[in-house]
Design a protein around this nucleic acid. Structure first.
Length: 261
DNA sequence: CGCATTTCCTGGTAGC
DNA sequence: TGCTACCAGGAAATGC
């Protein structure tokens, strides 16, 4: 994709502001393909930028979709150069985004505008993470999901990291001890680097760009394991809802913060 | 301003 | 088998 020109870009149905300003990409060159957190960023010539987000179930593919998936194609991008020279953006549940903005202007994308450091970069330090936690009054799980203290942690990896760090998901972020914050920092890095090494977590539909299943599901210790024994202590894992998200945790390893039963 | 709640949307599945 | 009802969730919009 990098270095190619966008010769065609078709939005296959009106989908509102999640798919805005695509016509501006016509005739532009894709100068780079980058990732920040869960956002895919493609700087275009002319000071523009294509921003894509797969939501939960989105797919960006160069292969023509199967008959079954054809109805989920939302955007088709025709590129210069030899085959493969078509990009298909599939988004079955319409939770994705695919839009053109002025480069670096993320006013309509507040999460991207306030995105925390990349978890596997040198910019994600214990000190910075600790001071971010200090400033939030949200539960630590909700704060992780906000993408502000660190980029890219979704529901699965939040549960995994909190379990590894032995931190209860409802602990107020600012109430974490320095030891807990340090453990959580390391846990986020360990979980994400292991998940990347396993090419992600396939629960049902997710496939890598090469069509392979992500293999991290077999390593999940917490996510989706409510009612099953904790891999560390054997206690039955519990489920609760945090910020409208299903949450699994071990009531023994991840002791409740003071005042929470 | 900061946080909580609601909304978007459809495939998958439980229950009958 | 076929129907209904409900759940899942990332980020934005809305509410307080």
């Amino acid at each position: 994709m990098q270095g190619r020109d966008i010769l065609e870009i078709d939005l296959l149905a009106p989908l509102g502001p999640k798919y805005a300003s695509l016509e501006l990409a016509l005739g532009r060159r894709i100068e780079a393909v980058e990732r920040r957190g869960k956002f895919l960023l493609m700087p275009l010539s002319g000071g523009l930028e294509l921003v894509a987000h797969l939501g939960m179930t989105g797919v960006l593919a160069q292969d023509a979709p199967s008959e079954r998936a054809a109805s989920h194609v939302r955007v088709r991008v025709g590129l210069s150069g030899g085959a493969p020279n078509v990009l298909y953006f599939l988004d079955p549940r319409r939770f994705g985004r695919f839009l053109v903005v002025k480069r670096g202007e993320y006013a309509g994308l507040p999460t991207l505008a306030a995105l925390g450091p990349e978890p596997l970069s040198d910019g994600f330090t214990v000190a910075a993470f600790q001071s971010a936690l200090q400033r939030s009054h949200m539960s630590v799980k909700s704060y992780l999901l906000s993408q502000r203290p660190v980029a890219g942690v979704g529901n699965i990896y939040a549960d995994e990291a909190l379990w590894r760090a032995a931190v209860h998901p409802l602990t107020p972020a600012s109430a974490l001890t320095p030891e807990q914050a340090t453990r959580l920092h390391h846990a986020v890095r360990e979980v994400l680097s292991a998940a990347v090494a396993s090419q992600g977590t396939t629960l049902s539909d997710y496939r890598t760009v090469l069509g392979k299943q992500g293999e991290y599901a077999r390593q999940l210790a917490a996510y989706g394991r409510a009612g099953q024994p904790c891999p560390r202590c054997g206690t039955t894992m519990q489920r609760l809802v945090v910020g409208q998200r299903g949450t699994s945790y071990c009531p023994t390893c991840q002791a409740a913060p003071k005042g929470k039963p």
